[in-house]
Design a protein around this nucleic acid. Structure first.
Ligand code: MN
Ligand code: MN
Ligand code: ZN
Ligand code: ZN
Lengths: 147, 147
DNA sequence: GAGTTAGTTGCGAATGATTCGCATGTGCAT
DNA sequence: ATGCACATGCGAATCATTCGCAACTAACTC
């Protein structure tokens, strides 16, 4: 059973990278994730598939994929970065500042506005990120009770 | 000449922090900066005013100010964080991925959209950040010549 | 104005995420 | 099948940020 995750394979070939089992594993994890994993979460899951896959390889893979537009690095909050496949749909992230959970919202209009803003500065927009921070409904409830 | 930067002083009192010369220095730097300094840039400038002010104090001051909404921490790109006074005007940041320079664009409409998106999730929006990444006009010119 | 004390600072050590160096392993073009 | 540039694993190195603790000091009290 030569697990030929053709999705990952072709993406790797497209960007001129060799197809290795490690890269396949990392990409499959990103593809099947609900989204927004950080490096060590990816690492943990990856080890279930290959117990010797190293953290350095996770980072190297993520970097290569980011540099080639396959993956997006998110700077949501805190120290560690999160990663997601660069899907085509524009979306912003809602970050709950209490529990840290993350929601995605469509943002076609936001990115349209971003592009317009960029044009005004002679800026060639390649990416528009938006992070909305707040308190989610359930955390607001709990906070209310404590008080 | 007791340099009584009343602006910084009252802000500090408002948030229940003691007024120290170190905090005044850091806040004055942020106030007079064109914007978006990282911790070590603040540190360097601070040392011109007080040669023994420590980097730890810079970080501690920034953290206290962030926690009290006086300063905003930006996650623009790369490893280090940038800081700016939490001015009232909503603005997004245009980050040139080549030279790293940063422009600010007004974003009232963006933040209105953010708030709407949040409402849809029962989210109480406390902050909306947007980062637009691209290539600035001058970098685009230089890239063109190299090729 | 001196006394008291909790909040601050400086300094160096500790952390924790991310990156490197290098010896070993392996895709893949021929 | 062979060769070699590219990848990986492992541990050490970086680098931003945080801590621990002893020495200060702002601000409150008399
Ligand atoms: Mn960040
Ligand atoms: Mn700004
Ligand atoms: Zn929450
Ligand atoms: Zn530029």
């Amino acid at each position: 059973m030569k697990h030929t995750s053709s999705l990952a394979d072709s993406r790797l070939r497209d960007i001129g990278k060799r197809v290795t089992s490690q890269r396949r594993i990392v990409m499959d994890i990103l593809a099947s994730a609900e989204g927004h994993l950080d490096a060590s979460e990816i690492y943990e899951r990856a080890r279930q598939a290959n117990a010797t896959l190293s953290l350095a390889t996770v980072y190297r893979t993520l970097k290569a994929l980011c540099e080639n537009g396959v993956v997006r690095q998110l700077h949501l909050a805190g120290e560690r970065h999160h990663y997601e496949l660069d899907r085509e749909d524009r979306h912003a992230h809602l970050v709950c500042s209490v529990c840290g959970r993350i929601w995605e919202v469509d943002s076609t209009s936001l990115s349209r506005a971003a592009r317009a803003a960029g044009r005004e500065f002679g800026f060639q927009v390649t990416a528009a990120r938006m992070e909305v921070v707040g308190v989610c409904a359930s955390c607001r409830n709990e906070l209310g009770q404590e008080k």
